[in-house]
Amino acid sequence: MPPYSSAPVRGVPAGSPGALSASAKRTIAGLSLWWPASPLAFVLSTVVGLSSRDRGPFWEVASAVLLWSGIGGVVVAPAVGLLIAFRLRQRPARRRFAIMGAVSLVVCALALLFWEFAMECAPGQAC
Rank of each mutant, 00 (worst) to 15 (best):
S51Q: 11
W35R: 10
F114E: 12
A14L: 11
R53W: 12
P17A: 10
P123V: 03
L105N: 02
R91I: 03
G124M: 02
I28V: 03
V61C: 02
M119G: 14
F86M: 12
V65K: 10
V75C: 12
G101L: 01
A22N: 09
G56E: 05
G72P: 01
P8N: 09
C121D: 12
S51C: 09
R89E: 13
G70W: 06
C121V: 03
A109R: 04
V80M: 11
A118T: 04
L110T: 13
P123R: 01
S45D: 08
G101R: 01
Y4G: 03
K25M: 04
G70L: 03
S45L: 09
A109K: 02
S45M: 10
F86N: 12
P123I: 03
M119R: 14
A85L: 02
C121Y: 12
A118Q: 12
V107F: 04
P57Q: 07
L88E: 14
A77K: 09
R10K: 14
G15C: 06
S16Q: 00
R94H: 10
M1W: 04
L66D: 10
L44I: 04
R89Y: 03
E120W: 05
P17C: 06
Y4A: 08
A102H: 01
C127Y: 07
D54L: 11
L44T: 11
A111I: 05
R96T: 03
I28P: 00
V75E: 03
P3M: 00
W35E: 08
L66H: 05
G81Y: 10
I84C: 04
A22F: 11
V74A: 14
G56H: 04
V47E: 13
R91T: 07
Q90S: 00
F117L: 13
P3C: 00
L31I: 00
F42T: 03
L50Y: 12
A111G: 05
A7T: 13
A98T: 13
L40N: 09
S5W: 06
A98Y: 09
Q125Y: 15
A41H: 14
L31H: 00
R55E: 15
V74D: 04
S16R: 08
C121W: 12
D54H: 10
G70V: 07
R91W: 01
S52W: 05
S32Y: 09
A29M: 09
V74S: 11
P8K: 02
F42D: 02
P123F: 02
A37S: 12
S52Y: 00
V12E: 06
R95E: 03
A29D: 11
L40V: 15
E116G: 13
W68T: 11
G72L: 06
V103T: 15
V61T: 15
S16D: 08
V9W: 01
L31V: 01
A122P: 02
S16P: 00
W34Q: 08
V61N: 04
E116A: 15
E120D: 00
R94S: 05
G101F: 01
R96C: 05
P78R: 07
P57N: 06
G18R: 06
R94T: 03
S16K: 10
